[in-house]
């Protein structure tokens, strides 16, 4: 009997997408060249801002599609059998805020988007801060033993 609604495959895809987003997100800062990452054989691409930006977009599209899928599955039935853990709620809130700030930033990058410079700066810094918060929340969940986002209703495990 599975105690979580999410299959191992979905979990792996989620981890892969978040990892790509974390790495390409970090690479939006001018770090790769300064800290010799671009000198590592096979990692020269890390210094190409346009490439890492597009990779970030591609992974973000994947995460949005996966998130939509999971929301659809949740409301189509999972919610009757599973409950979100407390740490799951926290992480989902952060992921949702990350997606919203990222999507707003994607919109801002379109030609003719009506977005002020102050709002853009707040979005950028908010997105960066949320990414850090997700990392901290994920580590806290890992080390507190409450890794699952959701568990079977009635189960005593993974309520934290």
């Amino acid at each position: 009997m599975n105690r979580t609604p999410v299959s191992p495959w979905i979990g792996r895809v989620f981890i892969l997408l978040v990892a790509v987003l974390a790495v390409t997100g970090m690479l939006q800062m001018p770090l790769a060249k300064r800290y010799y990452v671009t000198m590592v054989p096979g990692l020269g691409w890390t210094g190409d801002y346009y490439l890492t930006h597009v990779l970030h977009y591609v992974a973000a599209i994947g995460l949005m599609a996966l998130s939509g899928y999971l929301v659809g599955r949740w409301f189509a039935g999972w919610r009757n059998r599973f409950r979100l853990s407390r740490s799951g709620i926290v992480r989902l809130a952060i992921v949702t805020a990350l997606i919203l700030t990222g999507a707003a930033r994607m919109y801002k990058n379109l030609p003719d988007a009506a977005f002020g410079p102050l709002e853009t700066m707040l979005l950028d810094l908010g997105h960066l801060g949320l990414a850090g918060a997700l990392g901290i929340a994920a580590l806290a969940a890992r080390f507190s033993g409450s890794r699952a986002y959701a568990s079977l209703r009635g189960s005593t495990r993974n309520r934290r």
Binding site: V6, A60, A76
Partner: peptide
């Protein structure tokens, strides 16, 4: 990116891929 979340939402609501992914639900 505009299409992705809605496509995912519809797929999830219809249970598309649920068997393939063998999810716990």
């Amino acid at each position: 990116a505009l299409v992705a979340p809605f496509a995912g939402l519809v797929a999830g609501a219809l249970g598309i891929g649920a068997k393939l992914l063998a999810d716990g639900g």
